[in-house]
Amino acid sequence: MSESVAIPLQHRPEPVRPKPLLSNGVLGMMIFIFTEVMIFAGFISAHAVVRSQAAGQMWPPFGQPRLPVQETALNTAALLVSGLVLVVAWFAFRKERSRARIPLLLSILLGTFFVYFQGLEWVALLGEGLTIQSSSYGGFFYLIVGTHAIHAVAALIALIWAGVRLNQGRLTGSELATVSAFWYFVVLVWPVLYIKVYL
């Protein structure tokens, strides 16, 4: 007695290929970003665990410098603005492709500003004796911020690639969306890292 007895012959309308909700590039990038989010979640929770067990609840530990909270706040703002400008670029692109040039360039410049000043900050901190080996405090700082920096540089290279293709008039909407998705990830994960690591 098989289950299918009750089911009459089904008649379906002639099949058509449905339009995908998201293009392949954007969907693939979103899955990738999912994984990236989990990597940062791993770092952040490891950091939280170690911080909560710090000797005498001293954080930063004795003899280690404080992180530059204000300067980085400014830098954070630059990064957030860069993300916003990229949104503007997207809408400009939808209206008329060439109009995306200026906002895209601006977004890249702001992003570069962010990476450059983070680099300066590292040099200063190294000078003050905070190294990756000096304590778990320093270890997590360089590990987490460094991982973010690698992502930021990779995303900037992708944005520059998109800018070049835009100039040549070959950039497709799906390509811009894919590359932007990665930059949005870099922008949006940063405030979380800032709050968790700096404050």
């Binding site: 994984t35 990236e36 989010v37 989990m38 990597i39 940062f40 979640a41 791993g42 770092f43 929770s45 490891a46 170690v50 990756i132 080996q133 304590s135 778990s136 270890g139 997590f140 590990l143 991982t147």
Partner: peptide, 21 residues
């Protein structure tokens, strides 16, 4: 896999460049 990748990077640093995670 994300958290394990994070953990593996920390382990690799402990092994090679002398961090103490």
């Amino acid at each position: 896999v994300g958290p394990l990748i994070a953990g593996a990077v920390m382990l690799l640093f402990d092994q090679t460049i002398g961090t103490g995670f």
